[in-house]
Design a protein around this nucleic acid. Structure first.
Lengths: 107, 107
DNA sequence: ATCTTATATCGAATTTGTTCGATATGTCAA
DNA sequence: TTGACATATCGAACAAATTCGATATAAGAT
């Protein structure tokens, strides 16, 4: 939605855990076994994984993971979809593409 | 030379001044008028600009600029060529290309 | 209404980054 | 060999990021 803020993006990418989360979300089914277990069969949040599943994989506190995801969302790297009490985060491919383009053409 | 350390790269890119330096070094002749004034005519360090010229453009102390350039070099974004008492820094396009590729294919 | 579960936010401790001035090192010129 | 200049390194002050546990908010189940 908002325009690309490269500084916020690079800051978000300057952390191994956050980088891993982004990588894992490339293949959610593979990396998060319990993925979307809370969703009824007729609902699907394509590519989305809830905070709890991510926290389980990352070895950090719930508050830290929540904060990280929020940072990444503000940077435009992730988007959040709420379903009931869960928040599903998924990659925002548009921003990723813009970042690669930016490196190639502007930096 | 060394292998790509993306974390160091993203940290180096997480700063407006450093980002600007990298951009300016795309077109050294345009952005650094006094460029290569110290070099004898027969010597040319393609794309290289000395620390003093960069410092003049950035509004920060000599030690800070030196530190920034060193950070960027360690991250592989710049390479340094010494000529006499001057150090010329220029972009390392190979790393930049690797970073864009990394974003597209791995992150 | 109450309890439980999921996520977000707050406040604080610790670590890392920014930035400076002072000083060290290296090179050239007289 | 002394002096001047370019750059690098050091040590310290301040700002920002990391990370936690505690608490707030919000939704679902009893």
């Amino acid at each position: 939605m908002d325009n690309l803020n490269v500084l916020d993006v690079f800051k978000a990418l300057s952390n191994e855990t956050r980088l891993n989360i982004l990588k894992w979300l490339r293949e959610p089914e593979k990396n998060f076994p319990a993925q979307q277990a809370h969703l009824p069969k007729e609902v699907s949040i394509k590519g989305g994984v809830c905070v709890g599943d991510i926290q389980e994989k990352v070895n950090l506190s719930q508050s830290t993971v929540s904060h990280y995801l929020s940072l990444m969302q503000k940077a435009g790297l992730l988007e959040a979809v709420r379903y009931g009490q869960w928040t599903y985060y998924r990659r925002n491919e548009e921003t990723l593409a813009k970042v690669a383009k930016f490196i190639n053409e502007e930096i």
